[in-house]
Design a protein around this nucleic acid. Structure first.
Length: 480
RNA sequence: GGGCCGGUAGCUCAGUCGGUAGAGCAUUUGACUUUUAAUCAAAGGGUCCCGGGUUCGAGCCCCGGCCGGCUCACCA
């Protein structure tokens, strides 16, 4: 057995077929093919008798003695082709029968309707564009094995059209979001992925080493501090939609690299962002999906605006009783225990309350809900509510029981900002972003800011239960 | 990290009580000029995830590991 023939039985057979095809005047690889139209366009503009050139991967083949039917797929649609021995000749027909499922061919022929009324190209000539050396998954069930689907996304896309559909929708959604923001006068910008101080969120960063400067750098956990510098600089409306990296666990709703959209609008506040996200999400839903109701994780979610808004304290009272905030710490802890919520020893009343909220209330907020007026302790980078310094002027948008987007009236007081950084850094001065603080000291206008988890939004819009189903190449452990 | 479930032909999956490894699709050979999960006939195809152990004998039972799914916890 020669080297080319190593591999399994299927591969060996396909290499033999490739050699025979080449000998018959159908060499594989290395040619371009100018088609009349994509296969979906061919269906849309179907006209009997028209001569067309089409191409795609053979995904089904039904051979008979003197004719054959095959199905081509090009990722846009499938289209049937018909080959007749008396039309293309004995040699060409014999060679055609050497083709394997998965081979990519170009054909030229006339559009016809078959007896059963299917759109078909009756081919006059064909050429081999690329040989497939490995067998495709089974035609009926497709590729089911979840692990293989993620590890070999090419195969997943070839054999599962609904997967292709999700990722096409992803592209459309992302483009529509950009278009929406661009139309409102926002500038899309790109800020550093490699940062010397990983700021803007509280998360563990990935570390890399930069040889030229001989320093360690961090993959960003958020672009926030750079985008605010741009607000200081006079870019009134900016956004960035790009990857963040967080060195954390991996589960159904977390991938270590994920796409975040951060938006900042000068002279606005949390209310500006509230209007913006409702308009943006419903616009995208209607434009790309033509609907405002979505099935997600077993719930029907209506995006019809206006979305519900409830102050944090009211939400708590609604769920835990109107007298909740009159209770003592011990009473609160007793309630937590009764609800099966684990409480750490040193927690104060606000922390116990928030723990109960996190574990028993947030998950019940299925329809879109803005939770506003959060306790200041929970949100270190936001301005206080004008009428109550204990509360911050923010919202958290919850949909389907999951946090989709937080938004703030951004903290623009540099003295206060420094204080909070110092508390956060706990004495480690190297973690304080002095350049950012300097920028703030020149004066940042009042600003509304928001972060949106694009992958989670896509999960909702495409009805995907796992983040891996909206990320083309999700992180996996190395093959064992 | 804990618990539960899974890994068998290229793919989708069976495999009973521990007794020579099965089906469909796919592949090969033959028949077939309107099929569409084409049909008919025949044939070939296995590191049963990996490594130990028990046993006369292990896909199956036991121990350890790898990968994946679900779930709980952690982190935020």
């Amino acid at each position: 057995m020669s080297d080319e023939l190593s591999g399994n039985e299927y591969r060996q057979q396909r290499i033999i077929n490739m050699e025979q095809l080449a000998a018959a005047g159908f060499p594989a690889f290395g040619k371009a093919f100018e088609r009349t139209a994509r296969l979906d366009e061919l269906h849309a503009s179907f006209e009997e008798g028209k001569v067309v050139k089409a191409c795609g991967r053979i995904v089904a083949m039904r051979k008979m003695g003197k004719m054959a039917f095959a199905q081509l797929s090009d990722g846009s649609a499938k289209f049937q082709i018909m080959v007749k021995k008396d039309i293309i000749g004995d040699d060409s027909f014999a060679a055609f029968k050497l083709l394997d499922l998965g081979d990519i061919i170009g054909v030229e022929g006339e559009l016809i309707l078959t007896q059963t009324g299917e759109n078909t190209v009756r081919i006059a000539s064909w050429m081999l564009l690329s040989k497939s050396l490995l067998p495709l998954p089974e035609k009926f069930h497709g590729l089911q094995d979840v692990e293989t689907r993620y590890r070999q996304r090419s195969l997943d896309l070839i054999s599962n059209p609904e997967v292709m559909e999700v990722f096409k929708k992803r592209t459309q959604v992302v483009r529509e979001i950009r278009s929406f923001l661009d139309n409102r006068g926002f500038y899309e910008v790109e800020t550093p992925m490699l940062q010397q101080i990983a700021g803007g969120a509280a998360a563990k960063p990935f570390t890399a080493h930069y040889n030229a400067l001989n320093i360690d750098v961090f993959m960003r956990i958020a672009p926030e501090l750079y985008l605010k510098r741009l607000i200081v600089g006079g870019m009134d409306r900016v956004y960035e939609m790009n990857r963040n990296f967080r060195n954390e666990g991996l589960d159904r709703t977390h991938n270590p690299e994920f796409t975040a959209l951060e938006i900042y609008q000068a002279y606005g506040d949390m209310r500006t962002m509230q209007e913006l996200i409702q308009s943006m999400v419903t616009h995208v839903a209607e434009k790309i999906f033509q609907k405002l109701e979505f099935e997600w994780m077993g719930n029907t979610i209506s995006l019809q605006t206006p979305w519900r808004e409830v102050a944090y304290h009211d939400l708590i009272k609604e769920n835990l009783g109107a007298d909740w905030f009159d209770k003592t710490l011990d009473e609160a802890k007793a309630k937590a225990t009764a609800l099966d919520v684990h409480i750490e020893a040193g927690m104060d009343f606000k922390q116990v309350t928030h723990e109960i909220y996190d574990k028993t209330i947030e998950g019940t907020l299925i329809q879109p809900t803005f939770i506003t007026r959060l306790p200041a302790e929970l949100v270190p980078l936001a301005n206080h509510c004008p009428d109550d310094p204990e509360l911050v002027d923010v919202f958290e948008l919850i949909i389907g029981g999951k946090e989709i987007a937080p938004a703030y009236s951004e903290l623009n007081n540099p003295i206060e900002q420094r204080k909070r950084f110092e508390e956060q850094a706990a004495g480690d001065g190297s973690k304080i972003d002095e350049d950012f603080l300097d920028a703030l000291e020149y004066g940042m206008p009042p600003t509304g800011g928001m972060g949106i988890g694009i992958d989670r939004l896509l999960m909702l819009l495409t009805g995907s239960d796992a983040i891996r189903d909206v990320i083309l190449f999700p992180q996996l452990k190395p093959r064992g």
